[in-house]
C-alpha cells in the first residue's frame, strides 16, 4: 500500500481498500467461498505497481493486521502474506510494467498463490487438515479479475489524478 497522506487524492486508495475489505468478508454460499478473489491483495498490488516509490511496508503490515481482525483469523496471517507479496512486487515492478495484461495476470496468479500459501501454512500449523490444491482457487479467480481491476483503477487514477 501507499503512504496515504500527501500526494494528490490519495484518500481514494483508502476508500478502495475499505471496499476490498468489505468484499473480503461479504457472505457467500459455502461452495463459492473457495472462489472468492483476494480483493485486498489485488488493490495493494495495483498501487504498489503504480506508485512503487511511495510504498510503505508499515502501512501494508498494519492493513494486514486489520484484515486479520476483520476476518477473525490468527493475528499476523494476512500481515505476513501482504508484506511478502508487497516485497516481491517491489522487486519486480519494473518488469511487470512492460508486461501485457495477460502476462500480468499470470504474475498476479503467482503472487496471490504465495499469499494463499501463508494462509494455508497457518491453517495447518493450527492443526487443520489441508484439502489438496483447493487453496489456489482464489489465486485463479484473482488472476482472472486482474485485467478488469487494472483497467478500472487506471481509469480512476487518470480521472482523479491520483499521484
Amino acid at each position: 500500500m501507499i503512504e496515504l497522506f500527501g500526494g494528490h487524492n490519495r484518500w481514494l486508495i483508502l476508500l478502495a481498500l475499505i471496499v476490498a475489505l468489505t468484499l473480503a468478508v461479504y457472505p457467500l454460499p459455502l461452495d463459492w467461498r473457495w472462489w472468492r478473489p483476494e480483493f485486498v491483495v489485488l488493490v495493494v498490488l495495483y498501487w504498489v505497481f503504480t506508485l512503487p516509490d511511495h510504498t510503505s511496508l508499515t502501512l501494508v503490515w498494519l492493513l494486514g493486521l486489520a484484515q486479520d481482525l476483520v476476518e477473525g483469523v490468527p493475528l499476523g496471517q494476512n500481515a505476513l502474506a501482504l508484506v511478502v507479496v508487497t516485497y516481491i512486487a517491489l522487486q519486480s515492478y519494473r518488469r511487470v510494467g512492460n508486461y501485457a495484461l495477460w502476462q500480468q495476470a499470470c504474475w498476479i496468479f503467482l503472487l496471490v498463490g504465495i499469499a494463499q500459501l501463508t494462509g494455508n501454512w497457518v491453517h495447518s500449523l493450527a492443526g487443520g487438515d489441508i484439502s489438496g490444491l483447493q487453496f489456489l482457487y482464489p489465486a485463479l479467480t484473482s488472476a482472472i479479475l486482474w485485467p478488469l481491476c487494472f483497467l478500472g483503477f487506471e481509469a480512476l487514477r487518470h480521472r482523479y489524478r491520483i499521484q
Partner: peptide, 14 residues
C-alpha cells in the same frame, strides 16, 4: 523485519 514480526504474531496468537 515485518515478516519476522508477522510470524512472531502468528505463533503467539496460535
Amino acid at each position: 523485519f515485518f515478516s519476522i514480526a508477522a510470524v512472531g504474531l502468528i505463533l503467539v496468537s496460535l
